[in-house]
């Protein structure tokens, strides 16, 4: 039988419990994991296919349920807040979509390693691949809802100005944060299985204390405190450019600070506990 030629790169590895070289190994893990994004993409595509197996609409169920929520809440709350529907609806549509994405990402982050348990215990792969897989699957699901925004904007006659391009920078920040949270929560939740429940509850609370349904202006003089809420800052870097002609400088600065913080904490934990993940899952 002909053999497929598998690249026979001679590799050498040294695992020394006395000299673990944690930082180098964590960096190598990140580098090798990101270089193998094709594997992560294939696994993410399988995740989505399996999650919606046999479903006719598939990921578009998310779009549909968001559309129903936007219509229902839009009519009621525009009356409650005494805002014109045409002004409130685009805000609400973007809000809900970004919020749903953030919330799903955070909750899914708890399982970034646990859900890959079977692979982690059988194959030596960079752990980064599992985090990347979870980011990609959430990104793909979120992308299915984009048409909803277009539809709402068309109905309400909103045309985002050239500043809307900045929303892409906001999305990039979101992706970075998602990756960091996936590493961090993924590890913590693999070790302590109760964290997942806590996270779900915190996200419920955050939905109400963050300006998702309501506008920050309603807080009047108290809205200066809002950037202390990381979810608000990150959400606003996407929502602001799209529906409110840009986000303020303080929002961008706080979003950047939160991103740097998240990445630093995640990396520190990854360096320290990477070698334990295989024992935890």
């Amino acid at each position: 039988m002909d053999q497929v030629i598998i690249p026979e790169t001679t590799r050498r590895y040294v695992r020394d419990a006395g000299d673990q070289q944690r930082v180098q190994r964590a960096l190598a893990d990140l580098g090798q994991g990101l270089a193998r994004w094709r594997l992560a993409r294939a696994l993410a595509a399988l995740d989505i296919r399996n999650r919606y197996r046999g479903s006719v609409l598939g990921p578009f169920w998310m779009t549909l349920s968001t559309a129903v929520m936007v219509a229902g809440i839009g009519v009621l709350y525009s009356a409650l807040f005494r805002l014109p529907l045409r002004e409130y609806l685009p805000y609400l549509a973007v809000s809900l979509l970004v919020w749903n994405t953030i919330s799903q990402i955070v909750i899914d982050a708890c399982g970034s390693f646990i859900s890959s348990e079977a692979i982690i215990r059988q194959m030596p792969l960079p752990f980064t691949i599992h985090a990347l897989r979870y980011v990609l699957r959430n990104a793909i699901i979120a992308a299915h809802s984009l048409p909803l925004i277009v539809v709402v904007f068309l109905i309400c006659g909103v045309t985002p100005g050239p500043g809307a391009v900045l929303a892409l920078a906001g999305l990039a920040l979101l992706v970075l944060n998602a990756f960091a949270i996936g590493l961090f929560l993924g590890m913590i939740c693999a070790r302590f299985r109760d964290i997942q429940q806590i996270v779900t509850n915190v996200m419920q609370l955050l939905f109400f204390v963050s300006p998702v349904l309501w506008k920050p202006e309603l807080l009047r003089e108290n809205q200066v405190w809002l950037p202390l809420n990381p979810v608000y800052s990150l959400m606003e870097t996407v929502r602001g450019p799209l529906v409110e002609s840009g986000a303020s400088t303080i929002i961008w600065i706080s979003a950047l600070v939160y991103t740097v913080l998240a990445c630093t904490i995640a990396f520190a934990f990854f360096v320290r506990f990477r070698s334990r993940i295989a024992f935890w899952v």
Binding site: E8, T9, T10, R11, R12, Y13, V14, A17, Q122, P124
Partner: peptide, 21 residues
């Protein structure tokens, strides 16, 4: 295979590895 990291001692592996576990 490199799945579990030793908590004690030292392991050196040189060469490409194939696993049928």
């Amino acid at each position: 295979a490199g799945i579990y990291e030793p908590v004690g001692g030292r392991l050196v592996v040189e060469g490409s590895i194939g696993t049928l576990i």
